[in-house]
């Protein structure tokens, strides 16, 4: 479903990616681990069409997305991908439920239906009561859950998560992971999770290590 092959990316003098490759199949959960600064987030951003790599290929469903213009990539991200990032990208003026409903409404869903679906997701994440609160009034963990709901509500084909459990206590973190894994299982979505936490990585079917801008081949156990 997703094929990332030998991508390179530099920021000024810094070589962030130096020939990194990654494949994700439908229904597969892949954890990306590795030291700080090794290029994990950059890999995720390139794979998701947020950043354009300087070289190499990124193909989604057989289509080269690294070659697409910003407009096409942005549409693809909105319709087919879901994102959970380290720092929540919630819209401060909207309530939690509206934030979650936003991707569906952008996709053409009616406001009422989208809000109902948003509430269903909040219930699934054990935070029904925050529906009417604005992001500034949410705790870190609540904000994170709202971000997770917003990433999943439009049933994306691929979910990209960068430290999705970073601000959660272990029980909430496990709950979020359980939901991500179930989504992959039920919808056949591919999930890519960048994490420093081995317990989070253990929810994935496999993990790949990024070191010095490359994905190092896993050793057989």
């Amino acid at each position: 479903m997703l094929h990332v092959t030998g991508i390179r990316k530099r920021f000024g003098q810094t070589i962030a990616l130096d020939g990194a490759s990654l494949d994700v199949s439908p229904g597969e959960v892949v954890a990306v681990v590795g030291p700080s600064g090794s290029g994990k987030s950059t890999l995720l951003h390139c794979a998701a069409g947020i950043l354009r790599p300087d070289g190499g290929e990124v193909a989604f469903d057989g289509r080269r997305i690294d070659a697409l213009g910003e407009g096409d990539r942005s549409r693809l991200r909105r319709t087919s991908f879901g994102f959970v990032f380290q720092f929540g990208q919630l819209v401060p003026e909207l309530t939690a439920a509206e934030n979650i409903a936003l991707p569906m409404m952008l996709g053409g869903a009616r406001r009422r239906a989208a809000l109902a679906e948003a509430r269903r997701w909040l219930a699934l994440l054990d935070r029904r009561e925050v529906a009417g609160k604005r992001p500034g009034d949410l705790s870190g963990g609540e904000g994170q859950r709202v971000a997770v709901a917003r990433a999943l509500v439009h049933r994306p084909r691929l979910v990209f998560a960068d430290e999705p459990t970073g601000s959660l206590d272990s029980l909430s973190g496990e709950h979020v992971m359980d939901i991500l894994v179930r989504l992959a299982g039920d919808d056949g979505a591919g999930v890519v999770i960048v994490t420093h936490d081995p317990r989070v990585a253990a929810y994935a079917q496999r993990d790949v290590t990024v070191r010095d801008g490359r994905v190092v081949t896993p050793v057989a156990a």
Binding site: A201, A202, Y203, A204, Q205, D207, P218, V219, A220, A221
Partner: peptide, 16 residues
């Protein structure tokens, strides 16, 4: 160390 890490991760996946 890498091999032991892989083995630990495999066990952690089973337990998860």
């Amino acid at each position: 160390l890498d091999a032991q890490r892989a083995r630990h991760m495999a066990r952690m996946r089973e337990l998860t």
